[in-house]
Amino acid sequence: MSDIIDQYRIKEEPYYRNVADEVELYEAAYEVRMPMMLKGPTGCGKTRFVEYMAWKLGRPLITVACNEDMTASDLVGRFLLDQSGTRWQDGPLAVGARHGAIVYLDEVVEARQDTTVVIHPLTDNRRVLPLEKKGELVHAHPDFQIVISYNPGYQSLMKDLKQSTKQRFGALDFFYPEHDLETEIVAHETGVAEDMADKLVSIAERSRNLKGHGLDEGLSTRMLIYAASLVVKGVDPLSACHVALISPITDDPDMRDALEAAVGTYFS
C-alpha cells in the first residue's frame, strides 16, 4: 500500500524563493490543517509553492488539474472490473485522504460547481469523504490537507466559486515578484546571466502594463523562464523572445507589433 503514496513524495528540494511571509503562514495553516486557497495569475509560482511546501513538510503531494468535464467520480473513485468481478479504484482525493497527502486541485474554478462540492465534507471539522457508491466513509488521515488554486483574472466574471466553497478556505494571494526577485528567479532557474534575466523581466513588466489594453494577462514568470532557457541553449535573444514570449500570448497583429518593438528596445 505504501508504494501507492510513495510515488507522490517529492524527493528533491524544489527551488522556491520566499517573497513575503507565505511560507510561515502556510506552515501555520498546515499545523491546524486549514484548507488553503492560492490566488494569482497564471505562471506566477502557485504550483511551485505547493511543491516546495509539500517537500518542506515531508508530505506527499497529489495534483489534480481540473477541467470542465471532470465529474465527482474522477476525484473520488470508481469501480473497475478484474478477474473475479468488480474492484474499487480510489480517486486522487480518496487516496490523499486515506494516506495523508496534500491534495492540490489546480484551477479549481474550471471544474463545475456540482463537482467541487464533493470536497466540502473534507474541508470542515468532519474531515470525512463519503464514498457513496462503495458505501464507505473515509475518515481523513491526520496529515491530510486540501489546497486549491485559482486565477481571479478575467475568467472570474464567468466562473466563480460558490460562497459555501470559498468560505471553507484560508487564502494566500500571489503576484509576480518584484523586479529584483524575479530577475533572481529567472537567473537561478535557467542559469542565464543576470543582465539578460534583468532585460527579460523588464520586457515582462512592459507587457503587464498592457493588461486590459488588449492583453488578457501579462507575460508570466514561467514564460520568462522558457525564454531564458532558450537563450541559454544559444538561441538569439530576439528569436527566443518571439518564440517563448510574444507568439504564445497574442494573435492580434498590432499587439504583436507593440511587443516586438518593446523587445527590440532591449535587444538589438
Partner: peptide, 11 residues
C-alpha cells in the same frame, strides 16, 4: 473508459 458507473451489459 472512465465512467461514473459500470454499464452492466458491457461488463
Amino acid at each position: 473508459e472512465d465512467g461514473d458507473d459500470i454499464d452492466l451489459n458491457a461488463a
